[in-house]
Amino acid sequence: MKLIFNQLTDMEIYGWEAFIGDWLFIFSFAFLALEFLRYGLREKMSWGLIGDVFTNYITLGAFIGINYLIIGGFYVGVFFYVSEYAIWTIETNWATVAICIILADIMYYWQHRFAHRVNVAWATHTVHHSSPHFNISVAYRFGPLDGVLPLPFYIPLVLLGFNPFVVFFAEMFVQLYQTLLHTEGFGKFPRIIEKVMNTPSHHRVHHGSNNKYLDKNYGGIFIIWDRMFGTFAEEKEEVVYGLVTPIKRNDPFSAFFHGFYRLGQKVFYTKGLFNKIGCLIMPPGWEPAHQKRQIKQ
C-alpha cells in the first residue's frame, strides 16, 4: 500500500517516462531483428521492406525534430498554463497515475478517431498508415503534426486536476503500449484478453485497408472503448495493410508529406468556400454534394 500511495515528485514521474520510453526504443530494435528473421524464414524479405523500415525511422527523426523545435515547448507551456485553472488538485502517486492512464486511454480513443474522421487531422495521421507493411518500426512512423494533435484531447485531464507530468506520462504510456501492438508475430491471445485489451490482432485490423476493417479499432490500451462505441471489428479475413489509395512510393519525403499534399490538392480543386471547408473538417472520403471534382488520383 505504501508503494502505491506514496507521493511521487514530478521529476520521478518524468524520469520513469524517459526510462520506459528509451528502453522500449532499444527493445524495439531487438524485436525488429526477430521480425526480420521471421520475414526471412517466410521468404517475405524484400528491398521494399527494408526501404520502408528506413523510411519509418526517418519520419521519426523528422517528427522529433518538429516536436523539439516547434511543438514541444508550446505543448508543455499550454499544459502548465492550463493547470493553473484546474478545478481539483489530484495528488501524484501510482494509484492516481493508474487512473490517469485509463482516462488518457479514453482520450486517446477519441483523439485517434478524430484523426481518422476529420480530414485535416488525417493529413498528418495518414503517414502512420501509409506503410504497406506491419512491424514494430511502423509504430515509429509519424506524420509532421502528430505531436500537436493530442493536445486538445488531454487538456481536460489537466483541467480536472491531474499534474501535467502525470498526464505526459499517461499519454506516453498509452503510446508505448500501442507501439508493442505493431507486429504480425502474434496470432490471437486468450479470449478474455482479446475481449478487454487491445492486441496485435485488433491493431492489425486497424491498419487494414480492407473494406470491413476501415475506421475500426481506434483503442489504445483497452479495446472495450471500441466495443462500447461501435467501432470494433474482429480479425477474420487476411489484412491488406496500408491506405485505400496507396502512396506507391517508398521515399521518406513522399511518405512524410503525402497527407498534406493530397489535402492541399483536394482543397485547391474543390469549388466553393463551404466545400473547401468541408474538405478540411469532413471525413477523408467526403465529396461535396452535386459537384464533380476534377482531381485525378
Binding site: 502505491i4 500511495f5 507521493q7 495528488e91 492516481t96 485509463i102 482516462l103 485531464l157 491531474f162
Partner: peptide, 25 residues
C-alpha cells in the same frame, strides 16, 4: 459515446482526487 466518455473521465478524475497520498503508515 462522447457523453459516456465525459462521465467516465470526470468520475475517474474525482476518484483520483479523493485518493490522497498515504501519510499515516
Amino acid at each position: 459515446g462522447i457523453a459516456v466518455s465525459t462521465v467516465i473521465v470526470i468520475g475517474g478524475a474525482y476518484m483520483a482526487y479523493e485518493m490522497p497520498s498515504i501519510s499515516e503508515y
